[in-house]
Write a protein that binds this DNA or RNA. Sequence first.
DNA 1: GTCTATAACTCGATAGAC
DNA 2: GTCTATCGAGTTATAGAC
Lengths: 202, 202
Amino acid sequence: MVKDINTEQRIYEAARRVFLKKGLIGARMQEIADEAGINKALLHYYFRKKEKLFEGIFNEVIERLSTGLQKILEIEMSVLDKLKEFVDIYVDVLLENRYLPLFVLNEMNHHPDKFGEFLKDRIAVHLKKFIIQIQKEMDNGSIRAGNPIHLLLHVLGLIIFPFAVYPVMKKVAGEELISEPYTFLKERKHEVFLFIKNALKP
Amino acid sequence: MVKDINTEQRIYEAARRVFLKKGLIGARMQEIADEAGINKALLHYYFRKKEKLFEGIFNEVIERLSTGLQKILEIEMSVLDKLKEFVDIYVDVLLENRYLPLFVLNEMNHHPDKFGEFLKDRIAVHLKKFIIQIQKEMDNGSIRAGNPIHLLLHVLGLIIFPFAVYPVMKKVAGEELISEPYTFLKERKHEVFLFIKNALKP
DNA sequence: GTCTATAACTCGATAGAC
DNA sequence: GTCTATCGAGTTATAGAC
């Protein structure tokens, strides 16, 4: 319990930790209160409802994820360079918060409409431009031809999936096979990009 | 409400549908009862507790998934052929049950120890053999060198991830970009394997 | 075996003292 | 602002009639 940051901030940060681990339904107000070192009543004093507290956190998370994406898509670079940037940045983001993938995926599935609209407003335009760029580079032969949307899904899957299975990964593979988890996951920056680069070699 | 299968079976199947969609916490006994066409009390008559009902279903799901994997790993084939088989079969499995990925991923994250042990007992041996086979083929140059474990994660991510984002996928990409979802996801059999094959070209 | 009714419990939310 | 105490809705689980 730190005293030099105010209570609201402390609650918010506690809530983010708990919500990210447990999701909206799984999280308990009691647990958030404990984590923040205060009691339940105070949660409601600062944030009227559980949903309200959650929404703020969720929006902030999504906002951060999508502005990162936007920035990369806006820069003038080849498809391959953009993908490299993309892999680098998001592996780092997920390394710092390994609960993010499942948190977002679950929310997406609980409110597909709301979430779909958000993404549509926020990144669909950039995404379409990028798809056109991919198509162009495929046409002029600088990368191997294929369906650009499938390519985007490939890339997302390669980046995100390992973090979603991170907790069991080590156990299944056994100590001899996997180096220290942080190191191993960081290796993916290199491994994933190499995999993509080779797959796209014309 | 069908009469020629017994009640226990009907409850079990209803429970599977509900649990897969909603997860253990999200599922409601009332909803399972409604889905089965009986009332709540009867659920407890057949399966003493919610957890008990859930556990049976979860174990069956995992069992089915891991025996499928085992079979492929046991057959004498090249790495690339095994991966092709692998992609084909699991895309079909997930097409038939699009809730499976998130269901399993969430449970894995809620009980990583239990789940880790299960997988360790069940498939770790086969997996290690496969990893050795991959290493061999990399060494003799029939596929491009790299870390076999990363390769396995690549493949899993490519197969599983798109099904986890399926609900929003269409909305984000827009109708013009994605064909009918079933068709689009089925295309992944071909797209994913091609991607892997190219990436592994020596 | 199947039902209705209700007990027992969990948890978000509020009242009210300090 | 922060706390204790408690309410009330929603859910799992059980009792008991048929």
